[in-house]
């Protein structure tokens, strides 16, 4: 029998399929779009088709993410905080602090040595420092999100983006462009802005951060510039799993296995 975890985020919908031995068989990430029910169905079909497995071979589904209650045939729904902790512990067992930056949330999670959530802190009701923030900035710079992650090479940390608000930061970026500021400097400023906001969350759950093993999950973990800025402030390497955006879905699949 197989177990499925589905993470319905604001930007992407992710699924991970595992077997009874907790082996990852397949995973899939698609944009959530405006109709999350359709995205759920599509991501499920994708992940099953990759291994030629039918729906009736799935013993249990656990859903997570902001749309977790939209999955109709779930065994249960679990928050993304618990699922990300579970997922990262399976992939990087030594992780003590997890930074997860998704589409509309950023979180810092402190894990105990069994991979359970010991404490967590989330951003308040504001998109600053999240995937949505980066999307808005990429739009202002007229580049796509993948390009943005590579664009701070050679920057000299000349620019500081002082606005935390996404809307104000976007107009700040537009002004910098108008002033002829080099794009790599602007992107570097944005990355440092995100890292400074995230560090605030990290320090709340791990005031004793020195020497702790830190990992990162969520779509923003693909952004090399943000990871570099975070590593620099934390003065340590950040471990990133091969597919950081599917960590929540993996955690959900593992919970499905445990609970069924």
């Amino acid at each position: 029998m197989y177990y499925l975890g589905i993470d319905i985020g604001s930007l992407s919908c992710d699924a991970v399929l595992i077997d009874e031995k907790k082996q990852i068989l397949s995973s899939s990430v698609i944009p959530t779009g405006a109709k999350n029910q359709e995205a759920i169905e599509r991501v499920c079909n994708e992940v099953l088709m990759k291994k030629n497995i039918s729906k009736d071979q799935i013993k249990a589904i656990v859903s997570t993410g902001y749309g977790r209650e939209r999955v109709t045939d779930r065994l249960s729904s679990v928050t993304e905080i618990t699922c990300h902790a579970k997922g990262i512990h399976a992939l990087i067992p030594e992780a003590q602090v997890l930074i997860d930056i998704g589409g509309q949330d950023s979180k810092a999670i402190r894990l105990n040595n069994r991979g359970k959530v010991q404490d967590f802190a989330m951003n308040d009701k504001c998109a600053a420092g999240t995937g949505r923030f980066l999307e808005a900035m990429a739009r202002a710079l007229q580049v796509d999100i993948e390009e943005l992650s590579m664009m701070d090479n050679g920057a000299t940390e000349l620019i500081t983006i002082s606005s935390m608000c996404t809307v104000f930061a976007e107009s700040e970026v537009v002004s910098l462009i108008a002033n002829g500021t080099a794009v790599n400097e602007i992107v570097n400023g944005l990355n440092r802005s995100i890292s400074s906001r995230t560090i605030g969350l990290v320090k709340r759950v791990a005031p004793d951060i020195d020497g702790l093993s830190i990992a990162m999950s969520g779509g923003v973990a693909h952004n090399k510039g943000v990871v570099k800025a975070l590593s620099k402030v934390l003065n340590t390497d950040i471990q990133i799993p091969e597919k950081p955006d599917t960590v929540g879905a993996l955690g959900a699949a593992l919970i499905a296995l445990e609970r069924s």
Binding site: Y66, V78, E80, T82, D105, V117, Q118, F120, M122
Partner: peptide
């Protein structure tokens, strides 16, 4: 007030306590 966001925080908190 965004009930979904608050709900997620409370649920995560309760899941943590349950553990």
């Amino acid at each position: 007030f965004s009930e979904g966001q608050i709900k997620t925080r409370i649920q995560a908190f309760l899941e943590m306590i349950e553990e």
